[in-house]
């Protein structure tokens, strides 16, 4: 456990060692704010809830989460520090979990800084704060799912840019898989895949959290999704670390 926490602590410190972390958080807040207030019609709707805020969140994550994870392994490979890290007395799984936890903690910090949205709706009306809390829990899980994908992709390459591009593409796929365009296309051509696509859609699952509904099935879904990608990350590392 101390090994996992040491890795997580170093990695989280690494995020804040450069201004990149602050730039990232500012971009995230500005993007969320703009989308919520302009496109989402936050004020015009005249409703005291955070639906417009949560509506755009997964799509902002599709773009920004791979930017958080792209350096996790690609940079270790480029610098050669991966050789140092993976010859310390820890298992590869511990290193994978430690890095994932750091990235997750960073995302939670970014999410926590959206608190002015919550204050605003509470000042303007009487929102269902339980529903908002459920939305945030869903957001943390969506972030975790995308982070796990992005981290695994980062282990494939020395290039942060490649890790970012593949990460965005994969996250988009998991976010968009329940879109009518996608499912219609699939049900005409490959009906089996259409069912699977609807089942793996991150955005669909997230919608129930936003409506205030936390089901065990959804939580298990996110947990297994994250676990699957962490295992994939470990396997990729095992096979590609010394290349």
């Amino acid at each position: 456990m101390h090994a996992i926490l040491s890795i997580a602590r170093r990695e989280l410190g690494g995020y804040f060692a450069t201004p990149v972390a602050f730039v990232f958080i500012v971009i995230f807040l500005v993007l969320q704010g703009t989308l919520t207030f302009s496109l989402g019609g936050f004020f015009e709707r005249d409703q005291a809830d955070l639906l417009p805020f949560f509506q755009f969140l997964p799509w902002v994550f599709v773009l920004l989460v791979p930017a958080i994870t792209m350096r996790l392994w690609a940079e270790e490979r480029r610098l050669g520090t991966i050789e140092l890290l993976l010859t310390l007395p820890l298992t590869q799984a511990q290193a994978v979990i430690g890095k994932f936890l750091a990235a997750w903690a960073f995302t939670v910090i970014a999410l926590a800084l959206t608190f002015p949205f919550v204050i605003t709706v509470n000042l303007l009306g009487h929102p269902d704060n339980g529903m908002i809390a459920a939305g945030y829990i869903g957001a943390v899980l969506v972030a975790g799912a995308f982070l796990a994908v992005g981290a695994a992709v980062s282990a494939l390459t020395k290039s942060q840019v490649i890790a970012f591009v593949i990460g965005v593409a994969l996250c988009f796929l998991f976010a968009a898989s329940a879109f009518p365009v996608v499912t219609d296309f699939l049900s005409h051509n490959l009906p089996v895949l259409a069912t699977i696509a609807r089942k793996v859609s991150i955005v669909d699952r997230f919608q129930s959290f936003v409506r205030g509904l936390i089901t065990l099935r959804d939580v298990i879904y996110f947990a297994s999704f994250i676990l699957f990608w962490l295992v994939t990350n470990t396997v990729i590392l095992e096979h590609r670390k010394a290349d």
Binding site: H2, L5, R9, G80, T81, L84
Partner: peptide, 27 residues
Amino acid sequence: GFLPEGAPVYPDMTVIGFLRFTARVRG
């Protein structure tokens, strides 16, 4: 105790920060 080829070390860490990190990982 292993010194890899080229002695890779995390560039953004301070010397003492890096050594504390390896000490913690080693328990």
